[in-house]
Structure formats: C-alpha cells, structure tokens
Design a protein around this nucleic acid. Structure first.
Lengths: 346, 346
DNA sequence: TTGTAAGCGTTATCAC
DNA sequence: GTGATAACGCTTACAA
C-alpha cells in the first residue's frame, strides 16, 4: 500500500508538501509538484479512506437537510426516515445533520427559514428545489461561498447544484405504459388520472414528464392501446373523486387506469368501485403503506416506485464523499431505479 | 463524541485496560471491568469506525471467495463482477480477497482446492455450499478455527455458517405466479418448464422452492389459473427444447409459461416460435444480457431478478464488518430483493 | 516554498 | 492486572 509518507520519502520532500499537491493548495514550486505528481501516478497512489475519515472528524462537518413535511407530503416520510437513519450513521463519523421540516410554502416563512439555514453555516445542503425568489437567492449565496448542494426527488437546473438524486420521471411513465400493456395484453382503452394540488399539480415536472413518457411509450410500442379522452387526464381534488368516476362512466370499456400523482390514495378504491364487476387494471406510482395494502387486496395491480430510501441516504453520502474524500458523483444525475411492485413482492 | 480515552480518564484507568474490556480480552480485575462497563453504558460509548478501520490495516485481513465459473454458470458472472468491484474497494482498506474460480465439480479437484484455501489461512470465507463430504469437512475445520463463512446464492444449513446472502426462492416463485396472473388477467392455463442440469436440476433447492412458491400462490390466490400437466414441469436438456415445444403442442390454449431455471436461454425463443401467432406470456428468473435483449424484443414478458450485485458485495461487506467492527449481520438470512424487470426498466 | 509536529480513535506490544 | 507508547494514514496549524 502506497502512502503519503512513501511518496514524500521517494520525492525527497515532506508529507506536508505532498499533501499540498494533493489538495491543490498553493505554495509548492511547480518543479516539486511535477515530481510529486509523477510519483503518485507511477506508484498508483490513492488516499486511504480510513485515514481521511479519521482526520475529517476535526472538521466538525455540518449538513443541512430541508424537506417538506406534513399530511400533504406522505411520500416524503420514507425519504425522511431513510435520511434520519443515514444521519445517525454520519453522526458516528463526526458529521452533524440538521433537519429543517418545511410545513408550508409561505414565502416569508421560507425566506426566514433559508436565513436560518444560512446562519448555521453548513458545509453542505440537501434540499428540494423551490421555484421562488428567496430560494434562488439563497442558492446563489451558498454557491458563492462554495457550499455544495444536492437536490433530491425533484431536479432544478435553474440554480447551481452539485447533483440530483431521484427519479427519471419520463422513464417512470414509460414503465407504467409497459405495465399497462402487460396487464391488458396490449389491447384496450387506457385512462389517466392525477391529483391536482398547489404543490404537485398538473404543471409539476413529475406529472408532465410521467405523462410524456407514458403517452410516448404507448404510441411507440403499443398500437393496440388507445388513450381515453385522447390522453387528457381526469384531475381530482382533495377527496372529490368525481372526475375519475366520471371517466369510468364515460368509458365502460376502460381496461386500465394510470394514476400519476396521488394525493388521497382512496381514489384507487373509488375507481375500483366505479368499475363495478368488470376488470380494471390500476397502475400507480410510489409505495406508501396505503398502497401496500391495496396491492395485497388486489385493488392496485402494480406500482412503480422510486427508491425513497436511496433519495434520503444518497444525497448525504454524496456530500460526505465530497467533503471528506473530495470525490464528486459519477454523474450529476443520480437516477434511482424504477422498481415494480405487485402483490407478492411488496 | 465519547472515546476510549474519555472512558479511561473517567474510570481512572488506561486506554489499554478499556480496550481489554471492550474486546473481551483476559487480564482485567472484575471490579475494574464493571466500572468501565458502567461508564460505557452511561456515556453511550460506540467505537469509532474510522479508528477501527485505520487500526485494522495492521491485521492484513484475507478473505477467500469461492465461486463456480464457466459457460454453464452464466448467472454467476454478475455476482463475480460485483464481488471483484467490492474486492477493489476492500483492497483500499487493506483487505485482500483471493478468488477461487471453480470450473468443475470433480470431488478430488474440489478436495485439493479446499486444502489450498485452508493453507492460505484466510480470515473469512465466502462460498457456495457444496453438498459433498470434502466441503463439509473443510467447513467443520474452518469453523473450529473460528474462521467465519458466508454463503451466497444458495443456502446450506447442513454446515455451520455465519449467514446467507441470496434469494428467498419460495417468494421468488410467488412473485412469478403474481406476474403470470397479472399478464393473463387471472384466467387461463399456465405451464412450467426448467433446465435440467447436473448442477442445477430438478432436485436443486432453487428449483423446488420456486416451484413450491409458484404452485402454492396460484392455488391460494388465483383460482382462474390452472396448471398445465398438473404442474409437472417440462424439463429440457442442453439445447434440446423438444420437451417445451411438446408442452406447447399439447396445450394450444396455454396462456403463460414460467421458465424456472434457464440453462440455454434460447429456449425462450423456441417457446415463442412454438406458440406461433397466439399470444404467450413468458416469465423467467434472473437478468443476464440475453434476457435483457429478449425483454426488449417482447419475447420475455417479465423476469424476476435477485440482485446479483448484492450477492457479490454483501458477503464481503458482512465479513469486513465482523472482522473489523465485530458486528454480526442483523439476521442470518440476508434475503435479496425480488426485482421485477419488464421491457422498460431493464 | 517547505518542514515539523500534533492529533483524529483504535489496537497491539511492551514493560511493570 | 495494568499502564505507557507506538503505530495506522491523513490533515493542518505553525515554524522555518
């Protein structure tokens, strides 16, 4: 195993100098630097993780984790849970993670929150991107100070960020189309419905991208499947599922229903009841407890999940890797796997 | 953060003594030990991972990894690949992994191989369980010396081992049944076929357990599905798929075919051709390149995979955790997830 | 521009 | 039985 000490000995310099070269710190004669670099390449030097981790303790690293929290954001619960588990692991390594639970999207509330985060002087930030001015300003300031940020669940390239950990929504829609085809034998009429909310409504990227992927895949690969209402989704609000019930009434021959974004999950039961005796394939996204139950009951045929556990843990790991080992993620898009769940593997 | 030094200071002893208590080494007065233990509980002491990792380098740990290798064992290639990646990570941490590629199951060859492994004096072993006497003896000897072993892909409780990392085959069969039901609408005739080999034939646990789970789930949850030939599988050997073609000929109304263990994967194409124009749902297990292609082409409808990457890496990680941190896995059965792949998420 | 030395927490080898 | 001390590899503040 080749160490800094070894490099230093061979180069005839001190460990400190090698370290300066390694971390790109100034104050090394170009000639010395070249010699050291040549040796590192030649001997295949890789910094030892254990050593870096141990030395990193002194830095007292702090990471801020911002996440929406409340009854409207059930899906984020699994992410938060995974993030807290990961935070416990990191605490063992001397890293503190501060959680900021955002309960509403009021502008002045957010503005104050961002200030609070800023004043805590974090070394890294994990957050959802918010499409509001205070957030953009906040991000710009943090970026100016060299504080890296990771987005999860939703990407936002309107602002500088290190990477995104989350779903490829277009692909998610494609998988849903494939499932619809599989469950219907590739023939019949398919309907689409979605929850319409101020946070996650018809203009949200998760909705539009999934819809795009879904319709595109149907058109490209499954000519036997036609879209009910030409693919115009039935939007339901709160617990008023009349739009969905109406869709089923207008299309008695509907073979499958794709529920893109779910707010109140009992919409699945409502759809099932509205279908009466005839078979109806229901495809959804994500996998919260309510969905597990409905998969087991046979109300939902299949659901496409996006590894909420990875979305909670991977952003923290990515920041740790950057701050301690200096390594950046392989890509700025860390897409989660699209996991298919049916009754038997939930 | 509470360290050994802190405990030692408060207990009025030296670090060495605390370390003795911690690692259960002899030579500590019971009274002192009690005091130290009380303090550790009180202050919530947890050994620091970075410190342990750094100190572990001096142990020069060696792990032996035994795996079947050859054209008959294509599935193991993904496992081997993941294991090699993990081995590279561990090498960075000062751990050496020696791979033993087993090319045939000749008894005397195996016996010599086990001796070779034994003489390399490994600190841990990752292997498949072999149902032969030399292996059992080998395991007994290693167990006697306190060398921990992890089984992957196939479990074997006929011999002492620390844990198993791999598939829950009964559940795997259940998922396949669920997929068959989903793809057929829950009505029709379902056939079963499997590769018959000396290594992985009709008496192998992966086959019998999957068959059990499959038939059990069909009977319990899908009364509309009936088993062709009463569930007796069509066994094919090598590239002679006549048994499968015969099955399709005898059951022109076959709606789905479950291919349990695949040797030559072109059996899927053969089945597809034998089905002619009528639709035939084909469900398989695992996901090697040949299957990816056939999923994309629509020949295979869905396949149930068992995380070969985890099967390659997790056993090594489990041994590292034991040897360096002294932590044992949460359960002696580390079941991999049953991942469903269709054309769109391969 | 470079070297020195202390320290991160754990383990192991001595000496007493 | 117990304590002191030297590693393990890396970082960093300070000295030269």
């Amino acid at each position: 195993m080749v160490t800094i000490k070894e490099i230093a000995r061979r180069a005839g310099v001190s460990r400190g100098t090698v370290d300066r070269v390694l971390n790109g710190r100034p104050g090394v004669k170009p000639e010395t630097e070249a010699r050291v670099r040549a040796l590192m390449d030649e001997l295949g030097y890789h910094p030892d993780q254990a050593g870096q981790m141990l030395a990193a303790r002194k830095k007292k690293l702090r990471i801020a984790f911002l996440i929406l929290h409340g009854p409207e954001f059930v899906f984020f619960l699994d992410i938060l849970h995974a993030a807290r588990d990961k935070a416990a692991d990191l605490r063992e390594l001397g890293v503190t993670v501060d959680f900021y639970l955002i309960r509403h999207l009021d502008q002045t509330y957010l503005e104050r929150l961002f200030l609070e985060v800023e004043e805590s002087r974090p070394d890294g930030i994990v957050t959802l991107p918010f499409r509001v001015k205070p957030f953009v300003d906040f991000m710009e300031r943090m970026h100016g100070r060299g504080v890296p940020t990771v987005f999860f669940n939703v990407d936002g390239d309107f602002v500088p960020r290190m990477c995104y950990v989350g779903c490829d929504y277009v692909r998610s829609g494609r998988v849903a189309a494939g499932l619809a085809a599989l469950c219907t034998g590739g023939y019949g009429k398919v309907g689409v419905a979605s929850f319409d909310s101020p946070f996650d409504g018809f203009d949200s990227p998760s909705f539009t991208h999934r819809m795009g992927g879904f319709t595109q895949e149907l058109r490209a690969s499954y000519p036997g499947l036609t879209l009910a209402d030409g693919g115009a989704p039935a939007f339901f609000r709160g617990s008023d599922f009349s739009a969905v019930e109406d869709l089923l009434r207008r299309h008695p021959d509907l073979a499958a229903l794709y529920l893109v974004n779910l707010g109140d999950f009992s919409v699945c039961r409502a759809a099932r009841e509205a279908a009466g005796d005839r078979p109806l394939v229901i495809i959804t996204n994500d996998l919260i407890p309510a969905q597990r139950e409905m998969l087991r009951e046979g109300i939902i045929s299949a659901t496409v999940s996006q590894q909420p556990d990875v979305q909670g843990s991977a952003p923290l790991q990515a920041l740790y890797d950057l701050l301690v080992f200096g390594t950046r993620p392989a890509s700025e898009h860390l897409y989660t796997d699209l996991l298919i769940y049916i009754s038997q593997n939930v």
